[in-house]
Computed example of a mutant assay.
Amino acid sequence: MSTVTVSAFIEAQDVEVWRLLTDLPARARWLSAVGAVDVLTPGDFRPGTAWRETRVRPDGAEAPEEFVVVEAVAPGRLVLSSRGAGADYRITWTLRRVERRRRGCTEVTVEQEAVPTARYGRMLALILGGLAARAVEGALRRDLADLAQAVGPTRSAEAA
């Protein structure tokens, strides 16, 4: 299993960040790597909600990914799962209110855990572990920067 964690401080209230993070139809507008979002379950955002988003890789290739909400505790914790080729992923978003100035600030941490599910997934994790972790970290940083840009200015970002 490999885990990558990235954090940023966003100059916005946690409820504003949560609202944007859980607005599935809006994801393609604020996530620069997402070209399209297809909501697969009807109704309100809650555990069990599923969607497919088409991510555009740096080389221009499209990569569809399906996500399912495992846990949603507004406005502080969102846990998603995604099945990948050779690995299952768990993505945890944690929002923590930090009082700053008049507007407030939210520390947003996103953690992605990858659990190999096939022999080749374990082999790839051993061979490409560091490279894959850097690629995931870059993607998570970009998603956080996009979120910050959409809801307010970013003060800083750091990897854990």
Results as ranks from 00 to 15, higher is better:
A114H: 03
A150R: 15
R52L: 00
F45V: 09
T117R: 04
T41N: 05
S32L: 14
V115I: 11
L20Q: 15
P116T: 12
V4K: 00
L140A: 04
A12E: 13
W93V: 02
E65K: 07
S32Y: 12
G76F: 12
P75M: 07
D88V: 03
L144E: 01
R142D: 11
V98N: 07
V136W: 02
R55I: 12
V70C: 02
R97C: 03
G48N: 13
R96G: 01
E11W: 03
C105M: 10
A160M: 09
D44R: 13
L147R: 08
D44W: 06
T22N: 10
R46I: 04
T154A: 14
R141W: 03
R57V: 08
R83L: 01
D143F: 04
C105P: 04
A61T: 13
R27Q: 15
A63N: 13
V6G: 00
W18I: 07
L95W: 08
T54E: 12
A87Y: 08
D88R: 13
R122P: 02
A133Q: 13
A72T: 01
D88N: 11
D146G: 11
R102V: 03
P47M: 05
R27I: 13
V69R: 05
T22R: 07
A118W: 05
R77V: 14
Q13P: 06
F67K: 03
P47N: 08
L20P: 02
Q112G: 04
T106E: 09
S7L: 06
R96F: 02
R119T: 13
A26V: 14
G130Y: 01
G130V: 08
A61N: 11
A148Y: 09
Q112P: 03
F9N: 09
T5W: 00
P75N: 05
A150D: 09
D38L: 10
P42G: 12
P64T: 12
V34F: 05
E113W: 06
G104W: 01
A157P: 01
A26C: 15
R55L: 06
R90E: 14
G86M: 02
R96W: 04
V73Y: 04
F9P: 03
E137L: 07
I127W: 01
C105N: 03
D143A: 14
L21P: 04
D44Q: 09
A63R: 14
L78D: 04
E11S: 13
A114I: 01
G121T: 10
L24S: 05
R101F: 11
R141Q: 09
L78P: 00
S156M: 13
W93A: 00
V37N: 05
A50R: 14
G43S: 05
R77D: 01
L126P: 00
R142Q: 15
S82G: 10
P64F: 01
Y89G: 11
T106C: 07
D143G: 06
P64H: 06
G60I: 08
A148F: 07
R57M: 06
V151H: 07
E65T: 14
E66Q: 11
R103C: 12
